[in-house]
Amino acid sequence: MKESPLSTREREKFEAQYSEIATLAGGLAHEIKNPLSTMSLNLELLTEDLDSLDVPAKHRMLKKVESVQQECKHLQEILDAFLQFARVGKLALSKANLNDLVSDFIDFFRPQAREANIEISPHFDADLPTIQVDKSLLRQVLMNLALNVVQAMPDGGLIELQTYHKDGMVYLDMIDNGKGIDENVKARMFDAFFSTKSGGSGLGLPTVKKIIDTHQGTIECESEPGRGTRFTIAFPVC
């Protein structure tokens, strides 16, 4: 189906909005990654040198170097998350059935869920209309949401994935029976760099929202502490 003029204008607006920041992010990444890689390599060489020494302080020196290596790794993760966030905007759209995409993701994610003692229960609408979606970015959305769910259920639990459609939109609910989210966190969860996790980049859920927005979709969260969480994503029918 041919896109409507409004749909085209909206997509062009998103692409123009994010293209400049993506260019700046790419330059920033280049400037940071080169010295960071050099630092990491030299730390590895330093570790090898220290390991060959036979001095009383060797263990203490190695621990300090390992601490710096961990910080370099953390910086790399933050940088990668920022680049992922900044580059969202240009879509490779194709027609797809959301059931198929979610089913493929479940097959991919199930071993990780099983390791975390989490059961996945899908409930799919058999008559789901097709949508226009960037399949790679949707996989990123599902992964980010699923990882948040796993962190909300450290002792295991249940994830329900439900698809349905109404009023020209296709919906996906991801529901968990985890610890839930309080109102203060829920109000800021899609803000860039906001995180309640030690060492978190604060860009996982903002990236999810940015991807959904770029698809002209919506994402909502319902949650109460101790009562689990429901994320609802909606995409326009094509």
Score class of each variant (00 low, 15 high):
Leu138Asn: 04
Leu138Gln: 06
Arg139His: 07
Arg139Leu: 06
Gln140Leu: 13
Gln140Val: 05
Leu142Cys: 06
Leu142Pro: 05
Leu142Arg: 05
Met143Tyr: 06
Asn144Gln: 13
Leu145Glu: 01
Ala146Thr: 15
Leu147Tyr: 10
Leu147Lys: 14
Asn148Arg: 09
Asn148Pro: 07
Val149Arg: 04
Val150His: 02
Val150Leu: 14
Val150Phe: 05
Val150Tyr: 02
Gln151Leu: 14
Gln151Met: 13
Ala152Glu: 11
Met153Asn: 06
Met153Ile: 09
Pro154Lys: 12
Asp155Ile: 00
Asp155Cys: 04
Asp155Gln: 13
Asp155Phe: 10
Gly156Phe: 02
Gly156Leu: 05
Gly157Thr: 08
Ile159Phe: 02
Ile159Pro: 01
Ile159Gly: 01
Ile159Tyr: 00
Leu161Glu: 07
Leu161Ile: 03
Gln162Leu: 11
Thr163Trp: 02
Thr163Asn: 08
Thr163Ser: 11
Tyr164His: 15
Tyr164Gly: 13
Tyr164Asn: 14
Tyr164Ile: 09
His165Asn: 14
His165Gln: 14
His165Val: 06
Gly168Cys: 03
Gly168Lys: 01
Met169Leu: 10
Val170Leu: 08
Val170Pro: 05
Leu172Tyr: 08
Leu172Cys: 12
Asp173Pro: 01
Asp173Phe: 05
Asp173Val: 09
Met174Phe: 02
Ile175Met: 07
Ile175Leu: 13
Asp176Gly: 03
Asn177Trp: 02
Asn177Thr: 07
Asn177Val: 07
Gly180Ser: 11
Asp182Pro: 05
Glu183Met: 06
Glu183Pro: 01
Glu183Val: 09
Asn184Met: 06
Val185Thr: 14
Lys186Met: 11
Lys186Gly: 03
Ala187Thr: 09
Ala187Phe: 01
Met189Ser: 03
Phe190Asp: 11
Phe190Arg: 09
Phe190Leu: 12
Asp191Glu: 12
Phe193Arg: 15
Phe193Gln: 12
Phe193Gly: 03
Phe193Ala: 11
Phe194Ile: 07
Ser195Asn: 07
Ser195Val: 11
Ser195Ala: 11
Thr196Asn: 09
Ser198Trp: 08
Ser198Pro: 00
Ser198Arg: 14
Ser198Gly: 11
Ser198Lys: 15
Gly199Arg: 12
Gly200Gln: 11
Gly200Thr: 12
Gly200Ser: 15
Ser201Pro: 04
Gly202Val: 09
Leu203Asp: 07
Leu203Arg: 06
Leu203Cys: 08
Leu205Asn: 09
Leu205Gly: 08
Leu205Val: 08
Pro206Ile: 03
Pro206Ser: 01
Val208Phe: 01
Lys209Phe: 01
Lys210Cys: 03
Lys210Arg: 15
Ile212Val: 15
Ile212His: 04
Asp213Pro: 02
Asp213Arg: 00
Thr214Pro: 04
Thr214Trp: 00
His215Asn: 09
Gln216Cys: 11
Gln216Asn: 14
Gln216Glu: 12
Gly217Gln: 05
Thr218Pro: 00
Thr218Tyr: 03
Glu220Trp: 01
Glu220Ala: 12
Glu220His: 10
Cys221Gln: 10
Cys221Pro: 08
Cys221Phe: 08
Cys221Asp: 04
Glu222Met: 10
Glu222Val: 13
Pro225Phe: 02
Pro225Trp: 02
Pro225Leu: 15
Pro225Val: 12
Gly226Asp: 06
Gly226Trp: 05
Arg227Gly: 00
Arg227Cys: 09
Thr229Gln: 04
Thr229Asp: 02
Arg230His: 06
Arg230Gln: 13
Phe231Gln: 09
Phe231Trp: 15
Thr232Ser: 14
Thr232Gly: 04
Ile233Tyr: 04
Ile233Val: 12
Ile233His: 01
Ile233Trp: 01
